[in-house]
Write a protein that binds this DNA or RNA. Structure first.
Lengths: 268, 268
DNA sequence: GGGGACTCGG
DNA sequence: CCGAGTCCCC
């Protein structure tokens, strides 16, 4: 018998400011594992109590003051915590663990928050953009080293395909959808033979977004979204993925994150 | 036939941040007139719509960016707006109007927010304390000029009597209850023969507070209050005042001001 | 637009 | 403790 495991990823834009909708989400959707990005909290102030109380007793957290911060909260036991520093500057942008499952041993889950990269898509004019490209390059090197079944998810801050943005033409020079970022992301994918689960289920001819700016007056009507959040798997896990959805309605809740959660259902 | 008019005063500590409890207060207690201090809003952003909708169609406002700001909102028509600058520095700390009543013409209502005065009760070490004393001195001069029936209310930031603070002994050197402030306030009172309505109804042997610090972990249990908010009347109005209460329960509402509203019922 | 940090004022 | 402002980041 296989075991159904639903794994979610959500850029929460402050887990403390968003505590009410995190609770609502876990009560209504109850994924088995939730990967969070932009927790914006040091480890000592991470709201472990809430997660434990909701049945997410296993947590791997990597926070820092102010910015960034990632965490995995899980009903499934987690072992072998690892942290990568792909930006080589100590920012808390990665956390990974192994799912300690009865039915499938040795599956790793890597949760990443790739740098946004600033406003100007130019290494010289904007050092943040260079740091983003360097981060992606180090992720490619890491990808080549991945030899075990792995799920790689998080806020990649890149919308690689034309239908991953509301207007390819208008965003082609906007950070997150520039050619060089898309190429860097493709290099990571190729280096690990990663399978983009969302596009495994939703044809690239269809628009698909996970993020809608706060600045739109009516995010739903204007629908100027981007697919910045991703769930990738090593090829050996492709057949285990049974469904993938974007929980778009969560973007409409009170005091929302600008990102919607994404969820993949696996049969392990 | 006389007309019953209830006049309230409340240091709201931001009328915008407190909009929900202002609405609740006006719905539950429905004073005829509400004097507000620390509105913390420029006139263009004052939430006139809410007050109008609740039946307070007459407003006199005096705001500024950031700090201070006072307003009178009223079901009773208001005329003859006046603003005093007792600090001589342009801060929005006073607004007054005449109540345009059928039964009693010519009653003025003066709403004042006296400076808090900083932490150190010393003119030299702390210029804010000097400014407060100067403000009180100018108010005394104004008091001498008051010749018509007048109600003077607001946040005076002085607790003049021993039972206006939770511990006279522990607060005698704390700004708001120092001897010099109490003397300055007494000089204002004497200059206008003002009657302290709260103490007209509540004997000075009884503790009476209108403010409880945010910093106490349990304001109600520790009850370390001070009577900073006052309602004074010219002697000709004393017999018109029929009751005075502190709406202490409002201090316990969600996201409260640190001040409770005070209300006097008049029969004009 | 909306986090968090900081500073100032109460 | 808790407003409001400013600045930085997304």
């Amino acid at each position: 018998m296989s075991q159904t495991i639903r794994i979610a990823s959500w850029n929460i834009n402050s887990v403390r400011a968003r505590i009410d909708i995190v609770e609502r989400y876990l009560k209504e959707e109850a994924p088995d594992v939730l990967c969070l990005q932009e927790t914006k909290v040091i480890d000592g102030l991470f709201p472990e109590g809430l997660f434990r109380q909701l049945g997410y007793r296993h947590m791997m957290i990597n926070g820092q003051p102010m910015h960034h911060g990632v965490a995995i909260v899980s009903k499934v036991p987690l072992i072998h915590r690892k942290v990568e520093d792909w930006q080589a500057n100590g920012e808390a942008r990665h956390i990974s663990a192994e799912l300690n499952l009865e039915s499938a041993k040795g599956i790793r889950l890597d949760n990443v928050y790739i740098p946004a990269g600033g406003d100007i898509p130019d290494r010289e004019a904007n050092p943040k953009f260079g740091q983003k490209l360097d981060f992606l390059t180090r992720m490619k090197d890491w990808s080549q080293s991945v030899k075990t079944p792995t799920i790689l998810t998080g806020d990649f801050n890149v919308a690689p395909l034309e239908n991953d943005v509301w207007s390819h033409r208008q965003l082609v020079n906007v950070v997150s959808h520039t050619r060089i970022e898309c190429e860097h992301l493709a290099a990571i994918r190729d280096a690990g033979n990663w399978v983009d689960i969302a596009r495994h289920f939703v044809d690239p001819s269809q628009k698909l977004y996970t993020w809608w700016s706060y600045r739109a007056q009516d995010w739903e009507t204007s629908d100027r979204g981007r697919r910045l959040d991703h769930m990738w798997v090593t090829p050996d896990l492709t057949a285990k993925a049974k469904a993938h959805i974007v929980h778009k309605h969560v973007r409409g809740w009170g005091k929302p994150s600008d990102h919607a959660p994404i969820v993949t259902e696996f049969a392990f």
